[in-house]
């Protein structure tokens, strides 16, 4: 199954702040059929209560919540911000890419996290994602 969906990707989005950016990435999960709206609320709750731990790498935030919080299928969304945003992380701010993930089953979200980590952890692919201009080019970079 191809996991990358065009409706789950938006390039050069204007977001007001971290919460807005997370909500946009979460709404794309809902639009693509990966999650119920309450999953987005759970992701936001996690960020507001626990902090900017979701900024896993320089410039990259990976919002997620537990599968039982309304995940419908394993998937992810990708938002490239027009302007980098401060999430409050000491070392990895500002954030330019927000990649929200969902997983189903006991390990689904870990598998998705590892898949996404494999792409975003690759410095060349990360750089390409910051530069591409359209979905077609993204589909050449994100191939799972």
């Amino acid at each position: 199954m191809k996991l990358l969906k065009e409706e789950a990707v938006r390039l050069d989005v204007q977001a007001l702040n971290a919460v807005d950016a997370i909500r946009i990435s979460g709404n794309l999960l809902v639009d693509a059929g990966y999650a119920e709206p309450r999953y987005v609320d759970a992701m936001l709750k996690g960020f507001l209560e626990v902090g900017p731990y979701i900024v896993l790498a320089p410039g990259i935030a990976i919002p997620h919540a537990r599968p039982e919080n309304g995940a419908l299928a394993s998937g992810f969304s990708l938002v490239r911000l027009a302007t980098p945003i401060e999430f409050g992380h000491d070392k990895n701010d500002p954030v330019k890419l927000v990649c929200a993930i969902t997983g189903v089953g006991s390990n689904g979200h870990i598998e998705m996290l590892q898949k996404v980590a494999g792409i975003l952890g690759d410095k060349d692919k990360h750089q390409q994602l910051l530069e591409v201009q359209n979905f077609e080019d993204i589909s050449k970079i994100i191939t799972f």
């Binding site: 996690g46 626990v50 902090g51 731990y53 979701i54 896993l56 990976i62 997620h64 537990r66 979200h109 870990i110 996290l113 590892q114 980590a117």
Partner: peptide, 12 residues
């Protein structure tokens, strides 16, 4: 932060 995502990936 929440003990079910990133930490599991890190442990693996």
């Amino acid at each position: 932060g929440m003990g079910f995502g990133t930490s599991l990936m890190l442990l693996m």
